[in-house]
Amino acid sequence: MADKKRAFDVTTLPGFTAIAITAFVLLYAPIITLVFYSFNGGNSVNQWGGFSLQWYVVAWNNEAVQDATARSLIIAVWAAVISTALATMAALGTTRRGKFKGQTVIYIIINQPLMVPEIVTAVALLIFFSSVKIATGYSGLGYLILAHSAFCIPFAYLPIKARLEGMDTAMETAAADLYATPWQTFRYVTLPLLLPGVIAGAMLAFIISLDNVIITEFVKSAGQDTLPTYMLGQLRRALTPEVNAISTALLALTVLILTVFFIVTKKRD
């Protein structure tokens, strides 16, 4: 040992800290590079041409990007609202009531989108919705909203369930003791206490919907690109820092939402 007098630290394992630091550097270096080149004044993604916001301006004025962004946001808001509402109900139905028959079945169905490979779900929805499209003649954003709402449910469900499990049932008992009807108990006691979980769930659902590529790619009809599928299409062409600019904007939005998420979930601990 180099330093004989150093205290023996039981949590130290040889080389672990070095590998961990390397892992963090490797995780962040590509993202930082990507963000860096979004401010490139030149035309290339790898030749630095001075600091400039020109690619943000290009992206902002690009009609396809505008459309895709609007579509992404519409779908994400709908998906977040629907999935959070349904997940809240399901969490209330499956938590703090003791075990009941078929509970495991409910868990499996709710968490199924986390287990099945996305490509399989995407293919399944492609087959199913293409027949429905032919049968009904409707080919609007409804399919995407429906699909996004479905796979967002488990992401909204988890924080809400965790929040519920941490809540004391004595609160509701006390409310009932003080003459509150079941509805009043829910409205004035359960829901306010549950709110941080619901907000956290909605934020996760929003991010998950906003980021989705594969299912969107398979379900969308012609001309229904979202921001990620638009970018996927762009990657096949000659790259300009415009993609970096769009990526950076999306990244900033994600970090912002996550920060709020952490503050919301931390504050009540």
Binding site: Q112, L125, F128
Partner: peptide, 22 residues
């Protein structure tokens, strides 16, 4: 439990699990 979970289950069966059978 089933009643409260059913809207979520229906949506999932319609737009996630059900199509797997197809």
């Amino acid at each position: 439990g089933w009643l409260l979970s059913s809207p979520a289950l229906i949506l999932l069966l319609l737009a996630a699990s059900g199509p797997l059978l197809i």
